[in-house]
């Protein structure tokens, strides 16, 4: 494996590692906002928390999509 390819593999592995550790954090934030929305005292706060929960959900989905793509790239580099 060439030096450049080895560096690419290392970088991709680092990105996968960080994205993997970040997903539960996004889910925790989502769950916290969902709970806050459920217990919200008014419609305005409920809407805000629901929107924030949805944002966190999308972050988790983005991270999952990135991991999937990076794993494919890693397989391609290792071939």
């Amino acid at each position: 494996m060439s030096e450049e390819r080895r560096a690419n593999v290392k970088e991709i592995k680092a990105m996968i590692q960080v994205a993997t550790l970040a997903i539960p954090r996004e889910r925790e934030s989502r769950d916290m906002y969902r709970k806050a929305a459920k217990n919200a005292p008014g419609e305005l706060s409920k809407q805000l928390f629901e929107r924030l929960a949805k944002d966190e959900e999308q972050h988790a989905l983005k991270l999952k999509a990135i991991i999937k793509y990076l794993k494919e790239e890693l397989d391609r580099l290792k071939d």
């Binding site: 590692q17 993997t20 997903i23 539960p24």
Partner: peptide
């Protein structure tokens, strides 16, 4: 379920 069974270095 939280880390999707990832097999990273850690």
């Amino acid at each position: 379920y939280q880390f999707d069974g990832a097999l990273t270095r850690l």
